[in-house]
Design a protein around this nucleic acid. Sequence first.
DNA 1: TGTACATCAGTGAACGCGCGTTCACTGATGTAC
DNA 2: TGTACATCAGTGAACGCGCGTTCACTGATGTAC
Lengths: 178, 178
Amino acid sequence: MRVTRERRAENRQRILAEASRLFREKGVQGVGVAEITQAAGMTHGGFYGHFASKEILLAEAIAYALTGAAEQLAVAADIEEYAQGYASERHLQTPGSGCPMAALGSEMSRQPTEVREAFARGVREFIVAATAGAGTREAALTRVSGLVGAMVLARAVKGVDDDLAAEVLSAIRTAPRS
Amino acid sequence: MRVTRERRAENRQRILAEASRLFREKGVQGVGVAEITQAAGMTHGGFYGHFASKEILLAEAIAYALTGAAEQLAVAADIEEYAQGYASERHLQTPGSGCPMAALGSEMSRQPTEVREAFARGVREFIVAATAGAGTREAALTRVSGLVGAMVLARAVKGVDDDLAAEVLSAIRTAPRS
DNA sequence: TGTACATCAGTGAACGCGCGTTCACTGATGTAC
DNA sequence: TGTACATCAGTGAACGCGCGTTCACTGATGTAC
């Protein structure tokens, strides 16, 4: 069952990408190693040839997702353009490809140090990128906090109070002018 | 081992209060029925005489915690006074007695309907209380989103980047004037 | 008020299940010649 | 370039553990008389 070096590297990358998506969709404890490797097209036994533990994978998946978020932000003209996409119906519905701070934020405080360090590094990067488009660092921190909180609340009530979810997102979209 | 009706009611109340604290501290999947009942001074077997399932307890614990949060808010002069206490070092360090939106927010979207309904009801109550002290409902939604997001981020990086945690809380404290 | 018995709150062992991790094995890849 | 063999990526069964839930049992409470 040996596989080319190139294929091995692809497998690792696929595990990382699928893990990053599944963790955001289902939460850290909501996905297992077996589900992740299956999504990546292999079986769970091969996992430990790529990552030492689920925890190490989580740390890498967090870094991967946050780097993605920072890149998306860097593409936007400024933080307000980014905010319109962030506080959108589309982002509400697609946590798997969305912001990891909103998808996993309140779980992070209970993770082991290695994971939280990856998260903190990613958030720092993200805030630096946001500051470029927000003027001051303080404004960036405030705006990002608002976006994250709004998405957390909107997702939490989505499906049981869609009006409230939409209202929260709408409010934060226009937040700076309030 | 039978116990007086009064004592039974106390036991139920203690389970609820401890569950509410432990869920906020450790997350839904981070605490078990055994740990909760032990914290309430009994063993796990008696649990199901009080609650049909862990899930039902969670729904009640969420309602309990959010009602508490809304009451705290109602006591404050306005939402800005509340915000100063919310975005504080003390609140950062005590999730067990703090805001359930920040402690459990991103886990809520993955909970069964019954739990999410309890959460949505509680958030609605909370927003109504916040609107009274914020002027408009939109302002209340914006301010609450900012507070929740800031606490989520601050807790996530607490212990690995305390400066960033403090910075996020500081920024959101002065948010409306930014 | 006192007594006898039925009720039932809480106990702790046990069950079933899922999950992270390990490991012997397979067979294709990579390499030494 | 071709061949023989060592390497090792991935497979799938198995292990150990924790957790939600069930259940027979205990003994104190509540109640009928």
